[in-house]
């Protein structure tokens, strides 16, 4: 059974005296009837796929529409020349998030986590952590279980589909999942994990899905950056001991209700929001001639 509440995970963690990620792993073993080694290997496979997607980034590639491509390289250059403003960690997170989003738009192989549109958030944060903090790979795999547990709760109690809940359900969910994962990597306990998740999600509530020309490019690619950076800063807030005033599970509940209240024109139909701005329509018009 998928988890419907974060509290279910933290309760089991407490009762059985095992870590958050371990609860999620054991549940997967039961659910899919696999051994511990098999489950772990599958998750490690996701990390491998994220890494090769990151390594395979091709700056010269453009998407079919001609809209996406090449921005990752600009950010890389900017980091090398002037990384001071945001520091090395965030600079690399930003760069990796854009690269993954662009690779997705250019029909490269990515990991939909939780969706293809939001595929840049979690790898941006975790691959940067792996690269800069020199932790063991197993730790990162454990952090992916943390992210997965949070993702299961959101998918069960709210949504991870833009067509259903707007972009809060895609970039928002990815950001909340990543926030919990970093909180764990930085030594946070269950409280820190669920609070990081809540704080990140709160910043994303109400985010609409309004892609230009219906393509997973504008605003999706750059939104991966804000989702990733939001995850890092939210986890830091939680790690400092600051708590979300709203219970984490209740934040997820409100995300579901907000999603239901969102009109269809802001849920992946491209009928309003950024999609129907003057620039958005002009881009769509131009694209329709290329495609």
């Amino acid at each position: 059974m998928s988890f419907a509440r974060l509290k279910e995970i933290t309760d089991i963690s407490q009762e059985e005296n095992i870590l958050f990620w371990e609860v999620v792993l054991r549940d997967d073993m039961k659910e899919r009837n696999v051994s511990r080694e098999e489950s772990f290997a599958t998750m490690e496979g996701m990390l491998d796929a994220m890494e090769s997607a990151d390594n395979d980034y091709t700056p010269s590639l453009k998407s079919a529409s001609g809209l996406a491509g090449g921005d990752g390289e600009k950010l890389e250059k900017c980091r090398q020349e002037n990384g001071k403003l945001v520091g090395d960690f965030l600079a690399e997170v930003m760069e990796k998030a854009v690269k993954m989003g662009e690779s997705n738009a250019c029909m490269k192989r990515i990991v939909a986590m939780p969706t293809a549109g939001s595929c840049g958030v979690i790898p941006a944060v975790l691959l940067t952590y792996l690269n800069q903090k020199k932790v063991a790979r197993e730790k990162i795999v454990e952090a992916l279980y943390v992210a997965g547990g949070i993702g299961e709760v959101i998918a069960t109690s709210a949504s991870i589909a833009g067509a259903e809940g707007g972009c809060q359900a895609e970039i928002g969910s990815a950001s909340a999942m990543a926030a919990g994962a970093i909180a764990y990597l930085e030594g946070g306990d269950n409280e820190a994990i669920v609070n990081a998740c809540a704080l990140a999600l709160k910043n994303m509530l109400g985010l609409t899905c309004d892609p230009v020309a219906g393509l997973v490019e504008v605003p999706c690619i750059k939104r991966n950056v804000s989702g990733a950076v939001n995850a890092v800063v939210s986890s830091r807030i939680a790690l400092s001991g600051i708590k979300s005033a709203i219970e984490p599970d209740e934040v997820i509940d409100s995300m579901r209700r907000i999603g239901r209240l969102m009109p269809a024109c802001l849920r992946e139909t491209g009928e309003d929001g950024l999609a129907t701005t003057k620039s958005g329509l002009a881009i769509a018009n131009k694209i329709s001639k290329v495609l």
Partner: peptide, 21 residues
């Protein structure tokens, strides 16, 4: 829905419905 419906799949982009589907 299981864990790896959320933590994956590995797919060629850009869209789970319009490409992978």
């Amino acid at each position: 829905m299981n864990l790896f419906d959320i933590m994956g799949p590995v797919m060629v982009g850009p869209s789970s419905s319009h490409t992978a589907g």
